[in-house]
Amino acid sequence: MTRPIAGGSGGAAGVEAALPHPGTSRPARVERVLENERLLATILLAPTVLLLGVFIAYPFVMGVWLSLSSTSVGNPGEFVGFKNFVKAWDDSIFQMAFRNTFFYTFWATIFKLVLGMWLALLLNRHFRGKRIVRAAMLLPFIVPTVLSTFAWRWMFDPTFSVLNWMLFKGGFIVTKLPFLSDGAWAMWCAIVINTWRGMPFFAITLLAGLQTINPDLHEAASLDGANGWKRFWHVTWPLLKPVTIVVVVFSIIQTFADFQLIYVLTGGGPANSTHLLATYAYQLGVATGLLGEGAAVSLFMFPVLFAVVWIQLRYLRRLEGA
C-alpha cells in the first residue's frame, strides 16, 4: 500500500511505502500528528523560539526594565521612568562616548569596506599559494579579540612600543609617537586594530560574492573595450551590492557595540577619549553597580542599530523587487 506524503510531489520521492509491522497504533498516531502542518511547524520552530526567547528576548526585556528602574547591584530598585536616560544625556562622559561610538564605527567600517574589497579582488585572481594566503588572511578574525588586542597594546605601548623603536632606529622620528597617550591618536589606534580584525570578514564574504559573478560578463565587457575600473564599476559592483550591504550592516552592528577592544586597549582613556557606549555602560553598570543607568546607556544603541537594520531591509527588498 502506498500513500503520498503530505506536501510531497506524488513522484517517487513523495511516496512512502507502508511497512507492515505489529503494533502500528502509536506510529500511526505520530504520523497523524506529523501530517498536521501547523503542529509540525510549531514543533520544529519551538526550540528556535525558546532559544531566541531565553537568550535574546528575555535579556532585552530585562534591559529595558532595568533602564527604567533605579536598580543597583543587590538592590531591586523601583520604576523611575526615563530618569536614567535624561541623566545620561546630560552627562558629558556619555556625550563623549556617544560621539566616539559614531566616529569609531564610521571610520572603521569605511576602512574595512575599502580594504576588504581590495583584498577580495586580489584573492579572486589566480596565483600560486592562493589557498594558503586565503587561510592566513582569516587569522586576525580567528584569534580571540582579547589576545590580539593585547598584542597590539604592546606594539602601541607608551614605553616599549616596537613601532616607536623601529621608527626611531630608522631615523624617522626623534621622540616617541603618543600612540595611546594622546586621545586622538588612541582613537585612531583603536580604529586601526578594529580594521585589522574585521577586514577578513569583509574580504571573505565579498570574495564569496565575487565568485558567484559569471566570468562571461567580464569577458563580454572586455570585448566591448571596458578597462579594469569600468568592469568593476559596471559589472562587479552592481552584482556585489546586495552582499556588500549585508556585510556592512553586520559590521556596523558589531562595531557600534564593540567592547572588548577598547576595554583591553585603553579602558576608555585617556580622559574618556576612547570611551564607547558599551565600555561606558559597563563602567556604570559593573564598576559603579548602577545597573539601571548602565542599561540606559547601552539602550541608546538600540534605535541607531534598529534604524540601520531597517534601512538595510528596505534596500534589499527594493533590490529584490527590481
Partner: peptide
C-alpha cells in the same frame, strides 16, 4: 614626567622602572 603615562595601567610603571626608563 613621562607623558606616555596618560595611557599607563598599574603595571606599566613597574616595567618602566625595572627597564631603567
Amino acid at each position: 614626567s613621562d607623558e606616555g603615562g596618560l595611557a599607563w595601567d598599574d603595571s606599566n610603571n613597574n616595567r618602566a622602572f625595572h627597564a631603567g626608563d
